[in-house]
Amino acid sequence: MANDTNATAGVYKETLIAGLWRENPVFRLLLGMCPTLAVTAAVKPALTMGLSVIFVLFCSNIVVCLMRRLLKPHLRILMFTLTIATFVTIADLFLKAFAPVMSETLGPYVPLIIVNCIIICRAEACASKNGLAVSIIDALGMGVGFTLVLCVLAGVRELMSAGTIFEIPVFSLARTGGWFVPWAAMSMPVGAFITLGLMLGLVNVVSKKTA
């Protein structure tokens, strides 16, 4: 009996860790690239985006998991999309009501969570096959893993392009007598692509060393 509980706890822990590093959605599975590149010009919108994705992933995994025995195979994808679109609409309304500035900055990228491959991929690969507990933990692991990547990428880009992190000045700007000349390119699409590319390279190096 005790052995059994231990084994389940092990599975939970494994699932959680997998989302954070081993199967990290952005670094390893290359999923959800569009928001990763689009909203990471600054940390604040990136964090908002990450939290919205966690919310949608969490809710859709629960719903998909609960109805997994009732699903007809050929209507499966349609049901997933319907579920995800519903929760994304709710997240969008929430942002519009309680964080209007963020909602405006993110613009169409909030509704675009619907087609974020992470969510539909987790619904298909995990929630429709596993129990409730595993699905919830998987959603949290994947969601937090995604949010962390978003924040790290956004941190680098915001620091380079404005000398701030979370809108708090870190470097003293040349304009006000400091030494740092903001690197505007980092907040443009170029910065997004190249930073993410280099970061993926770095992850490859690190994981090869630790393997």
Partner: peptide, 8 residues
């Protein structure tokens, strides 16, 4: 990675 950099 190199694909992303090229895209940039």
């Amino acid at each position: 990675p190199i694909t992303l950099i090229t895209a940039g």
